[in-house]
């Protein structure tokens, strides 16, 4: 009788009350972790507060720790260029793959391909870097970059010395690394499109592709944007593989063949050897910028994906 009246949220005996409180405390641990991250980053950055203006820090183009000159712009530029390049390459492939997997592939093929995509996601970043450094970079230097320069050499994007290392190499390796993220979220989103929409299009005489283009994709658009932002968030913070192939020079160049630097790469290279308090604080400041960007992107992306799922839940 008592068991019937007890609702899951109103524990009645001592054991239940303790168990409930313990669980809430454990859940709260996640919030504590979030707080600890913000506090620790903030505390490491404090030596810089008051000495360097935030806007100057972000807009500054000169990075010279010995002269205590800290400008973050070359790193922000490099991070954005490589990440956007990665999205430009990975997005069409991921969407094509997701459409094939959800709409076209025979049932038996699906678990195989999703296993392979999971494998791609499970490979450690440093192994991608190793492969990028010894396989991708020489290939770019000897075949791809001369070909691109020959065909599109009139564009400033494809000019300058072809050394393999640089924005192009970093962008391509990032594309491979974020592809599983974008593809798996897009697959998830496409699966939530109600089957009735497809049927309605097909029954009106649409071909399979027309049903996908006219009924499925418009419905999934917000979710696919979410998937892209998640991929972008991953690309921004990727460290090892980029550090190994981008060349690590804090310069802003237009050419994709040129070497550059990214936020995570400079932290990886300089943090362990940073001796002055200011240098450590400046690197922690870069980490704070990175943290802010990734939190923003991930929050927007998750909200978009959630909204798509919630909307479909009420329809179908």
């Amino acid at each position: 009788m008592d068991a019937l009246s007890a609702s899951p949220h109103r524990p009645r005996n001592l054991g239940d009350r303790l168990w409930g409180a313990g669980l809430v405390a454990l859940g709260g641990a996640v919030a504590v972790v979030a707080g600890v991250i913000v506090l620790a980053l903030g505390r490491l950055t404090t030596p810089l507060v008051g000495r360097v203006h935030l806007l100057e820090f972000i807009k500054g183009q000169d990075w010279d720790p010995v002269a205590s000159s800290f400008g973050a712009l070359p790193f922000i530029y490099g991070t954005l260029v490589t990440s956007l390049l990665a999205i430009a390459v990975a997005l069409p492939i991921s969407v094509g793959l997701a459409i094939f997997m959800v709409e076209i592939a025979p049932g038996r093929l699906r678990p195989v391909v999703s296993f392979l995509i999971e494998t791609l996601a499970a490979i450690p970043s440093v192994v991608y870097g190793l492969w990028g450094l010894f396989v991708l970079v020489p290939w770019l230097r000897e075949s791809v970059e001369p070909a691109l320069a020959g065909a599109f050499g009139f564009l400033p994007l494809f000019q300058g010395p072809q050394i393999g290392l640089g924005f192009l190499a970093a962008g391509l390796i990032l594309a491979v690394m974020i592809l599983p993220t974008i593809a798996s979220v897009t697959i998830e989103v496409l699966k939530t499109v109600p089957v009735t929409l497809r049927e309605a299009a097909l029954v009106l005489g649409a071909t399979r592709w027309e049903a996908i283009r006219l009924a499925v994709l418009p419905h999934a658009r917000a979710g696919m944007l979410g998937a892209t932002l998640l991929g972008l968030g991953r690309a921004l913070g990727e460290t090892m593989a980029v550090t190994m192939v981008i060349g690590n020079t804090p310069e802003i160049r237009t050419s994709l063949f040129a070497t550059g630097y990214t936020l995570p790469a400079v932290i990886a290279n300089e943090f362990a050897e940073a001796t002055s308090g200011e240098h450590v604080a400046a690197l922690a400041g870069l980490a704070l910028v990175l943290f802010g960007l990734s939190i923003l992107l991930n929050a927007v992306a998750r909200l978009l994906v959630q909204a798509v799922k919630a909307a479909t839940g009420s329809v179908g």
Binding site: V30, A40, L236, G237, L290, I295, N298, A299
Partner: peptide, 24 residues
Amino acid sequence: AIRFTAEVLSGVPSIVVGIVAYGL
């Protein structure tokens, strides 16, 4: 709220967490 926080935190770059551990 906790679920959302966990999802957003799972996108934080690992190198940032390294700096946090450095500070801690």
